[in-house]
Amino acid sequence: MRFKTSVRNIQTFSKLTASLSSLGKVAWLRLDDDTVRFTIIPETGTQVWASLSIDSIFEDYTIQSAAPNNTINLELPLPPLHRALKSAINASSASIRLTKKDGMPILSLTIITNTVSSGNSAHGFLNAAAGNQDPFGENGAFREESLDAGREREAVVTQDIPVRVLTADSVEGIHEPRVREPDAHIILPSLIQLKAISDRFTKLAMSTTTAAKAGSGNSSVPKLELAGNMHGSLKLSISTDALNIESVWTGLTNPELDPGQVADGEEGLEDHPSTKLRARGPDAWAKVRIDGRDWGRVLSVGRLGGRVIACFADEHALILYVYLANYEDGADESVLTYYISSFSA
């Protein structure tokens, strides 16, 4: 079993691990000849299924195993990986390899940083003058010396992240959640803006309910309601006994469905839930209720940029597809898929 690669885009990889580690501390990492997959399945909260093209974060990628497609499955702690990558932001290069230390499997991250050491040619002259030495030697003859100018030095740091190598049988039954066809799909506005407003709504709701909940011993977090329609609108709202606020975005895009991705093609498209919702007009919404704090952590993926499509299965689930920009034109697309269950009313 062998895995070794250079990190092509350290900053993007660091942002990705920061976003993922906010939702779960341990990930299932699946490596093979074609893709890199990160999966997070917490006991509660949002599931993440990230499928990345190799070229989006790696180069000089080498993998070998006895499994089909040279697949390697690892259980990976995300916080140590993120800390290691964060320390490599200013590195000139970084590489990762799967190896062993004291008989235990590890991912070894090697960081190379080039620094310029300060020269001392001027100091040499000043020091000689301070010591009342003639820098030109005896009888006015010049003494030749080497120039000790600043020179580049290479610093190498290696950080080890412990992992578990998983058998193919142990991960065979893991699959993405099955969700019915969405009632609405819409391209979200800036996630940074959406996160700021969502966090503000959650804090306001929590501040107005803290005193009342303290007396009853109920510390549940107020739920945000997120709704989308098929006429370019998105609505975010929260309601408690003390407040009722909402924010609405208009002029957004409802992407067209590909008949090739819908059962029965064009005929299936006519009977699709989103087609029926569109026919009901702009006042017809598909909505979900979600935990505000969990939603805020999901939106941290906004630091990666990219296009985000939200799919609403009314009163059931919200699925986000985050499409990352490709490092090279024509490269396979990288997509992070988030599955968020809706709370009942």
Rank of each mutant, 00 (worst) to 15 (best):
L204K: 08
T202H: 04
L166P: 05
A205Q: 03
A184F: 03
T202I: 06
F201D: 00
S198E: 04
L166H: 05
D199A: 11
I187S: 08
R153P: 01
R180T: 10
V157T: 14
V156F: 02
L191Q: 08
R151T: 12
Q193W: 01
T167C: 07
V179Q: 02
D160E: 14
R178T: 14
Q193L: 09
A155E: 14
I161L: 06
L204T: 07
E154Y: 05
I197Y: 04
D169Q: 14
P182H: 10
A196G: 04
R151G: 08
L188P: 06
H175G: 09
V156D: 01
I197K: 09
H175A: 14
I186F: 03
V156N: 03
R153W: 07
A184C: 07
G173F: 09
E176L: 09
T202N: 11
I161Q: 05
S198D: 05
K203A: 09
E172K: 15
S190Q: 00
I161K: 07
L204I: 11
I186P: 02
P189M: 01
V156K: 09
E181H: 07
H185P: 02
V163E: 09
V157S: 10
S190G: 01
A168M: 13
H185S: 14
E152F: 07
E181I: 05
A196R: 11
A205V: 05
D199F: 00
T167P: 07
R200M: 08
A196D: 14
P177D: 05
T202K: 03
